[in-house]
Design a protein around this nucleic acid. Sequence first.
DNA 1: CATTCATGACAACCAAGGTGTCATTTTTGA
DNA 2: TCAAAAATGACACCTTGGTTGTCATGAATG
Lengths: 157, 157
Amino acid sequence: MSEASRAPASDELADRLIEVFDLVGPLYRRAQRKVEQDAPIEGLSVGVRAVLNLLREHGPMTVPQMGRAQALSRQFVQRMINDAAARRLVEAVPNPAHKRSSLIRLTEEGRNAIGAVIDRERAVLRQIDGDLTEADIAACVHVLSRLLRLLDDVDVD
Amino acid sequence: MSEASRAPASDELADRLIEVFDLVGPLYRRAQRKVEQDAPIEGLSVGVRAVLNLLREHGPMTVPQMGRAQALSRQFVQRMINDAAARRLVEAVPNPAHKRSSLIRLTEEGRNAIGAVIDRERAVLRQIDGDLTEADIAACVHVLSRLLRLLDDVDVD
DNA sequence: CATTCATGACAACCAAGGTGTCATTTTTGA
DNA sequence: TCAAAAATGACACCTTGGTTGTCATGAATG
């Protein structure tokens, strides 16, 4: 059985995917708690953490771009960026492509702050004991990305 | 290199795991929006959905058990259950093990409601196009479960 | 039996995140 | 080229997921 490959996923697959979602919820909540338990050191809310991280790995972008990238409302991202800017973690630089919407960029300070946060998170993650393979994680990333794309059409704003 | 297997995960692994977390956030938010976009039909908040689903796949349990299972505070779960009970989606049955803390069980109506929600979600998930294998998803579930266990020590209440 | 622990109930609170709206600037297209 | 439509920033308000604190009561346990 199961010859289809481009066709819609089978029912069993869909069932397993539901399992994935049932894991994502608790995981998100626990992670959030963990982050906000640690982050006070840098004083970054999860929202600010998210946008800084995005800038960190994607480079300078505009606020609306970030909103779309993270499935967050433009306004919310804006608030986070304003907050971060007030603390000199990010700065606006002229955007050659759009005159009104400037590019947001990490400052040196911002890069350090988010770097420190990530490092601490990495330290926690490193404690995970051994039986996870590179391949497992790659598959996980693959599945999650795919799910993300599936839900992509859900638009905000 | 890399002989260690029971030892702490390598740095590269930790880095990939950070990728996983960066996916979990947006995915959670999008999924939440999707659910609450659809769920109005049944009128279930994500909180109620979560507890009903838990009962659905785990069978009757007490409120505190559910809180621990989902990494949610006892009080929050209680509210959701009260809400669900007010709508006759769940009912309390005497608990042989604990006299005070009764077991919460889905009513017929509740089972139908959560069933309908899950079915709709399954339908969405079935639209995912083909290149996800059973193995990929299994790996994903494995990784996420492992991460969940890692963060398990974070206790509520 | 006394003490400690777990549960339910309720209130207060916090933070994440969305929505609505307005003014301004950009982009588009006729 | 100019008007109309879309995108952006700013700000206020609101919803709600979720926690914490507290109290009374009923259970478990030494």
